[in-house]
C-alpha cells in the first residue's frame, strides 16, 4: 500500500507561531515594553564597544575633560551628554562597557547555576534514594547561607588560592563561578520535583519497554518536559545575578576597574557623591535598576504564562 503524503507544512506552522507572538505581545504591553528595553540595552552595550574608543584604556582618557556635568547643566558640553567622570571618560560610552560586562557576567553565572543545579536536580529526582537525600541535604545546608555571603566566600577563597597575579579574565571567571554556585539550589529543587512527577508517567515506561536507557530517557523525554519552569526562574535569576555581581564589584571584590561592570562604575562614582559630582554614580545606578526591573517584569510574565494554575486569570 502506498500513500501519497503532502510535504510537511512548515511555513504555515511558522506563521502561526509568529501570529501567536504578536497576540501575546498585544495581550501584555508591559512585558513587551520590558522586552524592548532589554533588547535596546543589549544592542547598545554590544555595539558601542565596536565603534568607540575604550575609555578604560589609556588612550581613551583625557584628564582635561574630567568632571564635566551632564549637558543640560551649566558647564555641560554636548560632546558628553551625560557628563564625564574623574578621568574624563564619557559616561555614556563608559556605561556601554559596564553594561556589557554586567550582562556577560549575569548570563554566564545563570548558565553555570542552571547547568550545575539542573544536572544535580535531574540526578536527585531520577535516581532518588540516598543520592537524592545527599544532594538535597547539601542544598539545605547551602540555603542556610545568604547567597551573597556565599558568593563572597567562594570569591575570596578562589582569590587566595590563585594569588595576587591574575588577569581580568580570571577575575571575571571567579565572579561568574561564585555567583553560579551560589544560586544552583533553586534550579535543583525545581527540576527535582518536576522530574519526580515525570519519571512515573506512562510515556517514560513506554520508552523504557521499547528499550531506551536511562540517559536517553532523561535527555530525550524528561528534560524537555521539565525545562519550562526552570527557564522562568533563570530569567528572574538573571536580574538577581547582575545585582549580586554589582554588589560584589561595589564592595571592590568583583570585577577590576580596567574592565568595569555597572557595579564598578557605581563604586567609582560613589567616591564623588559627597563632592557634588552626583552624575558619575547616578547614571549607572539608573541603568542597573532599569535593566533589572525589566528583566524581572518579563520573568514574572513568563512565569504567569507557563504556570497552568494561573491560566485564565489576567
Amino acid at each position: 500500500m502506498t500513500t501519497v503524503v503532502n510535504a510537511p507544512s512548515a511555513p504555515a506552522a511558522r506563521r502561526s507561531r509568529f501570529a501567536n507572538l504578536r497576540r501575546a505581545m498585544l495581550k501584555a504591553p508591559g512585558a513587551t515594553l520590558c522586552a524592548v528595553i532589554i533588547l535596546a540595552m543589549f544592542l547598545y552595550a554590544f555595539i558601542t564597544p565596536l565603534v568607540s574608543q575604550n575609555p578604560f584604556e589609556f588612550a581613551g582618557m583625557s584628564v582635561l575633560d574630567s568632571f564635566i556635568p551632564p549637558m543640560w547643566m551649566t558647564d555641560g558640553v554636548p560632546d558628553f551628554p551625560l557628563g564625564t567622570d574623574d578621568q574624563g571618560r564619557n559616561l555614556l560610552t563608559a556605561m556601554a562597557y559596564g553594561m556589557r560586562t554586567s550582562i556577560i557576567v549575569g548570563f554566564l553565572s545563570v548558565i553555570i547555576g542552571l547547568l550545575l543545579g539542573g544536572s544535580l536536580g535531574l540526578v536527585a529526582g531520577f535516581v532518588g534514594g540516598r543520592v537524592d537525600a545527599f544532594i538535597m541535604r547539601l542544598a539545605d545546608v547551602q540555603l542556610a547561607y545568604p547567597a551573597l555571603l556565599l558568593a563572597m566566600i567562594i570569591d575570596g577563597a578562589a582569590r587566595a588560592a590563585l594569588g595576587a597575579e591574575r588577569s581580568v579574565a580570571t577575575a571575571i571567571t571567579i565572579v561568574v563561578l561564585s555567583i553560579g554556585i551560589a544560586f544552583w539550589v533553586q534550579y535543583a529543587r525545581t527540576i527535582r520535583s518536576s522530574v519526580m512527577i515525570e519519571r512515573d508517567q506512562d510515556y517514560v515506561s513506554a520508552a523504557r519497554i521499547t528499550g531506551r536507557g536511562n540517559l536517553s530517557i532523561i535527555v530525550l523525554h524528561i528534560l524537555p518536559n521539565v525545562m519550562a519552569p526552570v527557564l522562568v526562574i533563570a530569567t528572574i535569576n538573571l536580574g538577581i545575578a547582575i545585582i549580586t555581581e554589582a554588589t560584589l564589584s561595589f564592595l571592590g571584590i568583583g570585577i577590576p576597574v580596567t574592565s568595569p561592570s555597572l557595579g564598578t562604575l557605581i563604586r567609582n562614582g560613589n567616591n564623588f557623591l559627597q563632592s557634588g559630582e552626583w552624575w558619575i554614580s547616578v547614571w549607572p545606578c539608573l541603568v542597573l535598576v532599569l535593566f533589572v526591573v525589566s528583566v524581572n517584569i518579563l520573568g514574572d510574565h513568563l512565569r504567569d504564562v507557563y504556570n497552568p494554575r494561573l491560566k485564565g486569570r489576567s
Partner: peptide
Amino acid sequence: QMIFQDPYSSLNGRWTIEDIIAEPIKVH
C-alpha cells in the same frame, strides 16, 4: 510493547506524533 490505560500520560507532550511513533522503529 505495552499499551497503557491513560492515553494522556502515555504520550510525551513535547514530541510530534511522527517522533513518538518513530521512536520504537529507531531504537530497534
